[in-house]
Design a protein around this nucleic acid. Structure first.
Lengths: 171, 171
DNA sequence: AATTGCATGTAAATTGTTACATGATTTT
DNA sequence: AAAATCATGTAACAATTTACATGCAATT
């Protein structure tokens, strides 16, 4: 279960509240994993029960500040070292590409154009992300993930331009 | 729900048994979506209940041959035209990259090397796929999806080589 | 005073995996 | 005769989403 390890990894950086963790899943982590508050809060309770995190303090407005334990740090490192990455692919946009033959050529092209638009906007967001530095222990791996996002998105844009050039249609 | 539409899309090509559909999810469709038999068979029952497919015949060994109905064809087309692709990203390998700072540089490099190996093997499988033609109505979109896979995988390989070059370490 | 953002939780439903279960036909 | 593959299903569990639910604090 990756969510546990994503939470442990974020708490390994520094203690955080559940809400702060949630915000991370709306920020840079969202480019690789997503979760809602209804999944995060119960998972934090389970991690505490398992002794991987502890509530170190209380913040304003009844917020709870969690910190990782030695067992938690061991667990996230064990997961990274000893378990095989789960590589199952599940991409709705690509599934649609597979079924695109069901549409008229003009509709197919419209779909590809929309995807191209979306990916160009996504690339712009990633480039913006790259201009705001985190500058801490996690800096190198943040750069790694960002560079992956940039290259993957540029490849997708190149592919969409190629696909659109395959079936020339009126404007 | 994408599984329904993946099944409808495959049945739009030609009538097939549940088992044949399952085999597709172990073949080329697996590059964009996966499902097990325990998910496929109940979903086929539901699609039939909803009138999107019908059992047109029985094959050998108690197999059931399903065909798509007019309503099913309309539904998959409606889905392609009117619904927004679900773009949520969930990549275990990339999440690991985000947490790689938790490991020693040598362990980090080992992780990246294994990923590189995996992606090179994956690329070889895709290139093999490209040498075996389907040659029917779905040919163009099959080529589109394959070309995407090739470009995305090459981009990933380039990124891994770049990442490994970032932190030079003894062989 | 009202709206937005902070902050946490639970319940119900859906989607997906792993395990259980059975039987026919073909290949070795 | 045994093993592999074809062929279908269900049950239990895990992961995820959507909806329900509440209250505090800061901003407009």
């Amino acid at each position: 279960m990756s969510l546990r390890h994503a939470l442990l990894g974020l708490l390994a950086e520094r203690p955080r509240t559940g809400y702060a963790l949630l915000k991370h899943f709306e920020g840079s982590i969202s480019y690789v994993w997503t979760a809602r508050h209804s999944q995060i809060y119960p998972e934090l309770a389970r991690l505490q029960e398992d002794g991987f995190i502890r509530q170190s303090a209380s913040g304003p407005r009844g917020s709870k500040i969690y910190e990782i334990t030695k067992a938690g740090l061991d667990e996230v490192r064990r997961w990274l070292r000893e378990t095989e990455p789960e590589r199952t692919v599940r991409s709705d946009p690509l599934l649609r590409v597979f079924l695109l033959w069901l549409l008229q050529p003009e509709e197919r092209e419209e779909f590809l154009r929309r995807e191209l638009e979306h990916n160009r906007a996504y690339l712009a967001r990633l480039e913006q992300l790259g201009r705001s530095e985190p500058a801490n222990a996690t800096e190198q791996t943040f750069r790694f993930a960002l560079e992956h996002g940039l290259r993957a998105t540029r490849a997708r844009i190149g592919w969409l331009e190629w696909a659109l050039a395959q079936s020339p249609l009126p404007e």
